[in-house]
Design a protein around this nucleic acid. Structure first.
Lengths: 199, 199
DNA sequence: GGCTATACATAACACCGTCATGCAAAACGG
DNA sequence: CCGTTTTGCATGACGGTGTTATGTATAGCC
């Protein structure tokens, strides 16, 4: 029942239906108490839904293959991250509604950890400066991608601006981390195409 | 009455109280219908509140003086932008809840226009490349700042990360736009201190 | 087989946004 | 200056929301 409720909530989010307690349990053939026995209330349900969002994101990022070009891989991870957000926009927004009360905070940190590991590889491989901070690079890439994504999801920026700006910002950050500008742009172009689905 | 209601809603947001219709009108000595005559309902009230948020942001950015170093001014604008968001976090989040139904979209675009104008000055002054796109630079700076700010406001990142990452990202973007790395960092450092209030 | 504990249904509760109705005061036209 | 209209707001009710006290049936255990 637990999993069915979370899944149905995610479906309702994807279908842009308002996720209300009664509408949720009705379609699941349950009653309102099911949510309270399993999640302790709607906030608990939302925590589980956000957790599910991070789980799906982690799974999607895991499909990005690691090549011998870590900078390209960073761009590919960024593209996959953005693609996931665009695929399930309401779920993505719910994920970042608040950072509190996540059931498994470690699982939520997995996507970020993947970025950090990739940035560390770029440093060890000599692409980034020896004194560059992989965690800082990952944080900046993540924050920039998140901001761009959020502005698109809320309708402030048109969807096309993601294609145009995200790779440029990523390349700028990689150059700042020590990569050669020309190489950075090549790697980002290749990586972005890898992480972006079916075009 | 109109202005009083909007102001009170902003106060409640600042005080982290839930902005509910009845709690809103009670403190204002009005009845629920006041909101309906003036705003047509709660969504209309929220539109007005978001408009107020953009108005305050524009006013705050206007206090940033223009110097003969446009790159420094860009950083100062960014710092002021972030400072405003941290000063009224709930209002900032409400501003970007959705982009629809703003009463005066032009006023909401004013902060962005200030960034674009500054980036254009940097290009004319030779700091940015002659073929750089001021609107693109402004968009990328804005998106990165927005993402960093949102992650901090939602509690995903600690507040200190703003100080650490925002200037670094800004400098990276300016260098990508054509500025000299050393000069960019100097200007950003100076500008960030200018736009950050009282320290 | 009896006992306990867990999972769920029922139904009521307080609160939310909304709106039909009514009324008083301001604005207006003669 | 008085009657009419319009505007601004109070009252009260309605449906929908999350929550929870109460009852019940099913499963697991000794």
């Amino acid at each position: 029942m637990r999993a069915a409720l979370v899944e149905r909530a995610a479906e309702m989010l994807a279908r842009r239906e308002p996720v209300t307690l009664r509408a949720l349990v009705e379609g699941a053939g349950a009653s309102t108490m099911a949510v309270y026995t399993h999640f302790g209330g709607m906030p608990g349900l939302w925590s589980a839904v956000r957790q599910e969002g991070f789980t799906r994101l982690t799974a999607r990022l895991a499909t990005v293959p690691a090549t011998d070009d870590p900078v390209r891989d960073l761009a590919a991870l960024g593209a996959a991250y953005v693609a996931n957000a665009l695929a399930v926009p309401a779920l993505y927004r719910a994920m970042f509604d608040t950072a509190a009360d996540l059931e498994d905070p470690a699982a939520a940190a997995a996507p970020f950890a993947a970025l950090v590991a990739c940035a560390a590889r770029a440093r060890e491989g000599g692409r980034f400066a020896a004194d560059s901070d992989p965690e800082a690079v990952a944080t900046r890439l993540w924050a920039a991608g998140h901001g761009l994504t959020m502005l698109v999801l809320t309708g402030v920026l048109p969807a096309e601006s993601l294609e145009g700006h995200a790779p440029a910002v990523a390349a700028a950050l990689f150059v700042a981390a020590g990569d050669d500008p020309e190489r950075a742009h090549r790697s980002v172009r290749a990586g972005w195409a890898t992480g972006t689905p079916s075009r």
